[in-house]
Nucleic acid binder design. Sequence first.
DNA 1: CCGTATCCCCAATGATACTG
DNA 2: CAGTATCATTGGGGATACGG
Lengths: 128, 128
Amino acid sequence: MADTDPGTAERLDVTPAHRELLDQVLDKWSLEVLNTLCERPSRFNELRQAIPAVSQKSLSATLRRLERNGIVERRVLSSRPVAVEYRITPLGKTLRSPVDALFDWADHHLGAIETARRAYDEADPTAS
Amino acid sequence: MADTDPGTAERLDVTPAHRELLDQVLDKWSLEVLNTLCERPSRFNELRQAIPAVSQKSLSATLRRLERNGIVERRVLSSRPVAVEYRITPLGKTLRSPVDALFDWADHHLGAIETARRAYDEADPTAS
DNA sequence: CCGTATCCCCAATGATACTG
DNA sequence: CAGTATCATTGGGGATACGG
């Protein structure tokens, strides 16, 4: 009950493990990679095309990080030349639900947030 | 229905606005500040004590950012000397639900993730 | 085709000192 | 008490070039 009571809230336990996990899973490119791989398994260059703004280096680092955390699986197809396929794992799929909740929150409140920003910015334009 | 079907998933629309919002709201210190202010309104130095690892500068920047986004409210109490109180806004309280979902996910899957990490690290120790 | 290695830059952060 | 200003550091990220 308390977790839906707007008047009081229990303190979350934000451990270093939590922080690290969120940093690795919610960082700039991870969300986009997850998003793409949730649709279908993809090769490295397919991911680059699906996420044009990412550099080779960052994509590589993101994939290795997600692989290490068991969120995506890297599968080498012995063909000519080498083909590598990335796919989301069952563990990775469980991430969708909380991430969707976060995006639903953002979608629902973006208007209010932009209103707050304008009010703040106009209250003290000299702050720039 | 599709959003709970592990076999398929719709693509999230990760806009720049989404990215910016998540960056501002889920960053390193924001979560801890929100967490503390969800318990009770606090003064600046109370927050510093509640979050010992944060620097003055980062706390100040975090608070201004959250204030600008309408997540926390800054209230100056005209006493001697000046006292300033920060409190969570109704909008800020709505953040708890999706953040809690994220932490629930982390708590539930941390074991599996650490197992995956060990497997990955032991598979190729030469990578160091 | 699938990356890693290297160089470089800047934005974020902490430490410190100072002000209303 | 509640910050801002300044300085120094660093590591994340892009661009580029090269290796398996």
